[in-house]
């Protein structure tokens, strides 16, 4: 049941990604190309997503625990360090080169385009390189 729930959650997220235009690198790169063929659509994606999460998270956290047990696992670190800033800066460079980010590319894989598989394979290589070079624990956590 938990896995069916997780699958449906991914499906809702993926349909959102597809409808929003986030999985289209042409739109993503145009969002950043303010000096050229600017397309501000993706600001509306972030706006829509934040409205729902800002309210929805707070409603969910009124519960004692998630539906399928365990506890709410929310990162509580507030450390602004070189890894955070440098890693984010590096991520943005890659996003600006390829036009895909991981959360958009996973649903995009379902369109059957080979470029998406190439991108996600390269992302996995990036994860492995980071682990080899920094010798620290992998980031199973996010944000």
């Amino acid at each position: 049941m938990k896995h069916i729930y997780a699958l449906l959650t991914g499906l809702v997220f993926g349909i959102g990604i597809a409808l929003s235009g986030m999985m289209d690198p042409a739109k993503v790169l145009n969002f950043f190309d303010v000096a050229g063929t600017w397309d501000p659509s993706l600001a509306f994606v972030m706006g829509g997503a934040l409205v729902v999460t800002f309210i929805g998270y707070r409603l969910v956290w009124r519960r004692d625990a998630p539906l399928f047990g365990g506890r709410f696992q929310v990162p509580n670190s507030s450390a602004i360090d070189a890894k955070l800033v440098g890693g984010s800066a590096i991520f943005g460079i890659g996003w600006g080169i390829a036009g895909f980010c991981p959360g958009a590319a996973i649903p995009a894989l379902g369109t059957g385009r080979w470029e998406v598989a190439l991108f996600l394979g390269a992302v996995a290589v990036g994860f492995i390189l980071r682990r080899l070079l920094t010798q620290s624990q992998p980031s199973a956590k996010t944000a």
Binding site: K83, L84, V85, G86, G87, S88, A89, I90, F91, G92, I93, G94, W95, G96, I97, A98, G99, F100, C101, P102, L118, F119, L120, G121, A122, V123, A124, V125, G126, F127, L129, R130, R131, T134, P138, S139
Partner: peptide, 12 residues
């Protein structure tokens, strides 16, 4: 771009 995205997102 994909390698850079993976490296940076993991580090950050």
């Amino acid at each position: 771009g994909g390698v850079i995205v993976g490296f940076g997102a993991s580090l950050g």
